[in-house]
Amino acid sequence: MRFRFRGVALGIAVGVVALGAFAAPAATAAPAQPSVPAETTTNQAEWAPADTAAIHPGVVTETTGGGACTSNFVFTSGDRTFLGQAAHCAGTGEATETNGCDSGTGPVGTLVTIKAADGTDRTGTLAYSSWVTMQGNGESDPDTCAYNDFALVEIAPEDVADVNPSIPFFGGPVGIDTDGLVAGEPVYSYGNSPLRAGVKALSPKAGASAAEAGGGRSHEVYTITPGVPGDSGSAFVDGKGDAIGLLSTLNLAPLPVSNGVSDLAHDLQYANANGGLGDIQLVPGTQPFTPAPPGISATTLAGPAGPPVG
């Protein structure tokens, strides 16, 4: 069973998974990924400094009629700038509604509050939603319906000068991963659920890939603690700093207390083909990626090696 978990109570006790319960699975080949590589861009003349930027990956977004989520990456199309979030952040149905082709959702044009790092609220607009687009297109492919969970919030032109595309703590992204993950491959994420009450030390997470789903459209991963309500949409990158995707679901089966990560390469390919926004591109971070920031103990981010066994 899979659950979406934008910032609303699920009534599910997920607990903490002990590291001793993990064992490294044998590496397996990753499923085929999109044949056309997703591009990145640096066409914004100047970004705000990473250490003072008010808007960056990881800031909280609150979608009118939906819930609170964590933004993932920065994107551009022409002179327009966007924050990525999960499509289900605009969901109007139950947490168990995971099929984007028939789940309730707010429309494109819905107002989104960006909870900026400087304590201000900025107003963005839902400019693209995979759920809205799939429903409008009559999409019927079951894997696409189940795992395409991507949306773009357009940042107001007057706020673009306050944007930096770097992921806090880890830096990056460097580019987009287009060859999928093998079991046991390390992953890194930065969640910002309001349930953490602003405690930044709880936001960075490291973990490992456990399995692929939907022909490579989704990655099931384990982190030391699983994503919680409000982490939805969080950025995931691999050991090179390439963007893998965004946090989409909490899975209770077949891999209990794993998280489903919607694959960005597939999601972006669909958005570029169907979203009507032109050529959407990921913006690389201005800060270099590092899986072990200076001054951080290696044991602090020691990720599990795979799914629980026994």
Rank of each mutant, 00 (worst) to 15 (best):
A86I: 01
A87F: 01
A87D: 02
H88A: 02
C89I: 00
C89G: 00
G91T: 00
G91E: 03
T92V: 04
T92K: 03
G93Q: 01
G93E: 01
E94I: 02
A95E: 03
A95C: 01
E97Q: 07
E97S: 01
T98A: 01
T98V: 14
G100D: 04
C101S: 06
C101F: 02
C101K: 04
D102H: 02
D102K: 03
S103N: 11
S103T: 09
S103I: 05
G104R: 05
T105C: 03
T105G: 06
G106S: 14
P107V: 04
V108Y: 05
G109E: 11
G109C: 10
L111M: 15
V112L: 13
V112R: 11
T113G: 10
T113E: 15
I114K: 10
I114R: 10
K115I: 15
K115V: 15
A117K: 14
A117F: 14
D118T: 14
G119W: 13
G119Y: 14
T120W: 08
T120F: 10
D121M: 13
D121F: 13
T123G: 07
G124L: 12
G124R: 09
G124W: 10
T125E: 14
L126C: 10
L126Y: 07
Y128G: 07
Y128R: 09
Y128T: 09
S129A: 06
S130N: 06
S130I: 05
W131Q: 09
V132M: 02
V132A: 05
T133Y: 04
T133N: 09
T133C: 06
T133I: 08
M134T: 06
M134Q: 13
Q135W: 03
G136V: 03
N137E: 14
E139P: 04
S140F: 08
P142D: 15
P142C: 12
P142G: 12
D143V: 12
A146R: 14
A146D: 13
N148V: 03
N148W: 04
D149E: 09
D149F: 05
F150C: 05
F150Q: 04
F150S: 04
A151T: 05
L152N: 10
L152E: 09
L152S: 09
V153M: 11
E154P: 06
E154R: 07
I155T: 12
I155N: 11
P157R: 09
P157F: 08
P157G: 10
